[in-house]
C-alpha cells in the first residue's frame, strides 16, 4: 500500500499504518453497511425483484411505472411536499423566535430551556400516542379547551383537511430541539459587536437585523438543510396515528416506500422509489446551497454589503 518511492520516513509509514488500523472499524462498516448497500439499491432499482427470487433486469420500467401508472406515487409526493412546505417555514421561524426568547437574560432561564427541550428528547412512538390522545375529536384536551373559548374544534387527524396540519403541529411541538442550536449560534456572536453598534447609536431593531440575523445565518443555513431532510423523512407519526389516511391525506412518501418494500416486498420498485426521494433531497440541498452565497454570512468575507 504505502510504497518506498513516495519518500516517507519509517516513522511516517508506521503512523500511516496506525492511522489505517484505527479507522478500520469505520471503513469496514462503511463498505459493508453503506457503500455496497447504496450501490445495490441503484442496481435493484432497475430490476424486477421480490426479495426471495433473483432480481431480473428490466431497465427503466420501475421508473416508468412510478411516473405513469401509480396514482399512489403522486398521492405520496403530494402529501410529502405539502407537509414540507407547511412545516419547514414554521419550524424555522418559530425555532429562531424561541431561541431569541431563550437568549434573554432573566432569572430561571435554565428552567425554561430544560422545559422547552423536553419534546425533542421524547420523539418516536410515544409522542405520536400522546398527540393522538390530545387531539381526539370528542374527548381530547385540545378540543375541550377550544370549546371553553366557544370554538368547535376540528376532527384533527381524522379530517382529511386537518390531518396534515395536525402532523405539522406535532413537529412544531418539538421546535425546542432546533431552538437550542440557534441559541448556541446566538451565544457565539461576539458581544463586542453589540457594544460597538450601541456606541455608534444603532437602535435595537437595527442591531437585530444588521448583527444578530446576519451572524446567525451560518447556523440557520445548516439547520435549514437538516430540518428539510427531516421533513422529507416524516414517517413514524403517519405510521402510528393515521396509517396514511384519511383519504391518503398523510400518505407520506416513506410510508409508501415502507408498504411497497416491506409489506408487499416489491423491493425492486421500492428501490427506485427511495432513489427518487434521495435525488429530490440532493437537488433541494444543492438549491439551498446555491442560494447560500446570497444570504449566508461568513466571517472574513468583508464586513459591509
Amino acid at each position: 500500500m504505502v510504497q518506498k518511492h513516495v519518500k516517507r520516513s519509517p516513522a511516517a509509514i508506521k503512523e500511516a499504518l496506525c492511522g489505517y488500523i484505527s479507522i478500520s472499524p469505520w471503513l469496514v462498516g462503511f463498505i459493508i453497511l453503506t457503500f455496497i448497500p447504496i450501490l445495490s439499491t441503484i442496481y435493484y432499482s432497475f430490476t424486477r425483484w421480490t426479495i426471495m427470487d433473483a432480481p431480473v433486469w428490466i431497465g427503466l420500467e420501475n421508473y416508468i411505472r412510478m411516473f405513469t401508472k401509480e396514482p399512489l406515487f403522486y398521492q405520496a409526493v403530494r402529501a410529502t411536499s405539502l407537509y414540507v412546505a407547511m412545516s419547514l417555514p414554521v419550524i424555522i421561524v418559530f425555532g429562531v423566535l424561541l431561541s431569541l426568547l431563550l437568549n434573554m437574560k432573566i432569572k430561571g432561564m435554565n428552567f425554561y430551556r430544560t422545559l422547552f427541550y423536553i419534546p425533542a428528547v421524547i420523539s418516536g412512538v410515544s409522542i405520536a400516542m400522546l398527540w393522538t390522545w390530545l387531539l381526539q375529536p370528542d374527548v381530547g384536551i385540545v378540543n375541550t379547551l377550544l370549546s371553553y373559548l366557544g370554538i368547535q374544534g376540528p376532527k384533527w387527524f381524522w379530517d382529511p383537511k386537518w390531518a396534515l396540519p395536525s402532523v405539522a403541529s406535532m413537529s412544531l411541538w418539538k421546535v425546542g430541539g432546533s431552538a437550542v442550536i440557534y441559541l448556541a449560534g446566538l451565544q457565539n456572536i461576539p458581544p463586542q459587536l453589540y457594544e460597538a453598534a450601541r456606541i455608534d447609536g444603532a437602535g435595537k431593531l437595527r442591531i437585530f437585523f444588521r448583527i444578530t440575523i446576519p451572524l446567525l445565518t451560518p447556523t440557520l443555513f445548516f439547520q435549514l438543510i437538516i430540518q428539510m431532510i427531516e421533513a422529507f423523512k416524516v414517517f413514524t407519526e403517519a405510521y402510528v396515528i393515521t396509517k396514511g389516511g384519511p383519504l391518503k391525506a398523510t400518505y407520506f412518501y416513506l410510508l409508501y416506500f415502507y408498504e411497497e418494500g416491506f409489506q408487499h416486498f416489491n423491493t425492486g420498485y421500492a428501490s427506485a422509489l427511495i432513489l427518487f426521494l434521495v435525488v429530490i433531497i440532493m437537488l433541494m440541498t444543492a438549491a439551498v446551497n446555491y442560494t447560500s452565497k446570497h444570504w449566508v454570512y461568513y466571517e472574513g468575507e468583508g464586513k459591509s454589503k
Binding site: I36, P37, I38, I51, K233, L275, V278
Partner: peptide
C-alpha cells in the same frame, strides 16, 4: 454519510 437517509440502504441490508 451523516446526511444519507437510512432508508436508502435498508432494502439491500434487509436482503443481506
Amino acid at each position: 454519510t451523516m446526511m444519507i437517509p437510512l432508508q436508502t440502504k435498508l432494502i439491500p441490508l434487509y436482503s443481506m
